[in-house]
Design a protein around this nucleic acid. Structure first.
Length: 569
RNA sequence: GCCUCUAUAGCUCAGUGGUAGAGUACAAGUUUCGUAAACUUGGGGUCCCGGGUUCAAUCCCCGGUAGAGGCUCCA
């Protein structure tokens, strides 16, 4: 749909003869005049739908309000488009628009449809008096897929034949971590209760650690106007992996494929001076990327994922130290969560081979690359170098890991950005009172929680540290005689350890069977209550994968468990 | 997105041109056992979806969807 709005002192028009066989019948063919009105020249186009009509009406109303016009003249004007809708449809639309606007309290005149008309108007000529707009239906997908019949949810087949036993897709299924539903869509994982427990523990853990290291937590919306991505320069690089925009009142909004611009706007709001730096903003931010359908894969490549994201804004002098702190943070965190096999990769630009991929001043690139290299040497960590793997806005360190099939992949990243601050006019005032651009470190220690949990499962085969285990203690009765005593033990432990995840298995089956189940589920502590325990008031505790220990005093067990969970051992 | 392979019970899988089975899980009953699988019985399937061939399709053919491996891309 296309339109031109003209704020006029008057318009006069008179139908002369039919231009279309299907022109509407008219009783009154006299000249009409409307004074002080908003004339809306309109062309309805092929494929226009309700959403387009809504946008059209919203735009007309907005303009009418802005110019304070109470009278509106809807004037069909076919010459605006070469892809006109069929006349029947177009007329229907014009009438519908007229009724809607009348209901809203406007005095609406509709010029006859399908006639050659003589007309005369006087446009007021102020800045808002002439506007044009165009509304388009989102591009129809060329190979549109036939709609599935509604019915039973189609299950997603996990073909285990080619997968290793520690593949996170198998563990994810067996341990109740996540689920991919065809009804929800490929690459859109649903976290099951056990998985969400792990994810939540990781988020909490990161927040604790990061706040300890001076990060400030923020929270930002999932959509944003597209203009910001034009400014940052992301659009040309990212358009393909971004979801198509949602149009609201004629403005394009995108699901965010990264959290950066949101954080940068917070920087612009709160940073004034070099004294405010470094500023470290952090957020477990959910992002959306339209990955190719052939590449989505378990929790490792998905279309909606939560980044353990942070942006560190600093001065060029602070860069090396801040970067070093990030590198050290990787080690601190990975040790706690149980990731052992990983290494660093310094990803550099390739100005000779792919100059188009990297933007900005080569001198600043060199400075950034040098500072990172120095930071890496200072850290004492081993790293490889890869030319051409840098981001478009700066060099980066990637944390590399091998998946269950031995293939190298990136789990996390820390990127230096020397380009975006200029594009978004981010600055601070330095010691000399001069405006300076900050350097940004984009870093995600855990990468995304989705991918991280996947690799965590693969590296540990599901044997997680106690603090991350979805079920930490399972209490089993030895015979039916012991159910009540076992319940009491559960109650007691829950009271003493309110944040601990304790469950019970009182099924009518053998102890071995229930122990086996708990072992398969990788429960760290299995407590069996039988006649002996009931009599002595002790616990039979079986630590994951070990032989049971008998005669443990509850107080001892509680103390030990509390320590392990608090210290995240 | 492209190439190859795959889709049968909640899960893991057999099987057949004449509409289906096992193990496990689930439910009921029996059993009351000292640390990785007790016994019996039962319910449970539009054999992924749409079309074609055929007297007849879960099986053969075509198309779609989803998954796996690879390419490419990424956290």
């Amino acid at each position: 749909m296309r339109l031109i709005t003209l704020h006029c002192d008057y318009i006069k028009f008179k139908p002369l003869k039919k231009a279309l066989a299907k022109a509407e019948d008219l009783k009154d063919k006299e000249q009409k005049e409307v004074k002080d009105c908003l004339v809306v020249l309109t062309a309805v186009e092929q494929g226009d739908n309700d959403s387009i009509l809504k946008q059209y009406l919203a735009a007309v109303k907005k303009t009418a309000e802005e110019v304070k016009a109470r009278k509106i003249v809807l004037y069909p004007y076919a010459h605006l488009s070469s892809m006109l809708a069929p006349p029947d449809t177009a007329l229907e639309w014009m009438v519908s628009a007229q009724h809607t606007l009348q209901k809203e309290g406007y005095e609406v005149t509709r010029a006859p449809f399908g006639y050659y008309k003589e007309f005369e108007l006087k446009c007021k000529g102020h800045p808002l008096s002439e506007l044009s707009k165009e509304f388009r239906v989102a591009e129809a997908t060329p190979n549109a897929k036939p709609a599935m019949k509604p019915g039973k949810e189609k299950k997603i087949i996990l073909d285990r034949r080619n997968l290793k036993p520690n593949d996170h897709r198998i563990l994810g299924e067996d341990l109740g971590i996540f689920y991919l539903s065809d009804e929800i869509g490929p690459g859109l994982p649903l976290w099951l209760p056990n998985g969400e427990t792990i994810r939540h523990e990781l988020i909490e853990f990161m927040r604790e650690v990061e706040e300890k290291h001076g990060y400030k937590y923020v929270s930002t919306p999932h959509i944003t106007k597209g203009t910001i991505y034009e400014k940052t320069g992301h659009l040309p690089y990212y358009a393909e992996s971004m979801y198509p925009p949602i149009q609201i009142e004629g403005v394009n909004y995108y699901l965010k494929p990264m959290n950066c611009p949101h954080h940068h706007m917070i920087f612009n709001k709160i940073v004034k001076s070099y004294r405010d730096l470094p500023l470290r903003l952090a957020e477990p931010g959910m992002t959306y990327r339209q990955e190719l359908s052939g590449v989505t894969y378990g929790l490792i490549r998905v279309r909606a994922f939560t980044q353990n994201d942070s942006h560190i804004y600093c001065t060029p002098v602070q860069l090396k130290e801040e970067f070093l702190k990030v590198i050290n943070l990787f080690e601190e965190v990975y040790k706690k969560v149980g990731i052992k096999d990983y290494w660093f990769r310094l990803s550099l630009p390739d100005f000779a081979g792919k100059p188009d991929k990297f933007t900005g001043d080569p001198k600043e690139w060199m400075h950034a690359c040098d500072e990172i290299r120095k930071a890496m040497s200072a850290s004492g960590k081993k790293f490889t170098e890869e030319v051409g793997e840098a981001a478009f806005y700066g060099p980066k360190i990637d944390v590399q890991i091998k998946n269950s099939q031995g293939k190298e992949e990136t789990i996390a990243t820390s990127q230096v950005d020397i380009v975006i601050p200029k594009r978004l006019e981010m600055h601070y005032i330095d010691e000399k009172g001069e405006k300076q651009y900050p350097i940004i470190i984009h870093r995600a220690i855990l990468g995304s929680f989705e991918r991280f949990v996947a690799y965590l499962l693969e590296q540990t085969s599901g044997v997680l540290p106690v603090w991350l285990s979805p079920v930490q203690v399972r209490i089993i009765n030895f015979t039916d005689r012991n159910v009540k005593a076992a319940e009491k033990v559960a109650e007691h432990l829950r009271k003493e350890l309110p944040k601990t995840r304790i469950d019970t298995d009182f099924r009518n089956t053998t102890v071995s069977d229930k122990v086996r189940d708990a072992e398969v589920q990788k429960v760290p502590y299995i407590i069996v209550i039988g006649d002996k325990e009931e009599e002595k008031g002790t616990l039979a505790v079986r630590s994951r994968g070990k032989k049971p220990e008998f005669g443990i005093k509850p107080t001892e067990f509680i103390k030990e468990l509390q320590r392990k969970i608090e210290l995240r051992e």
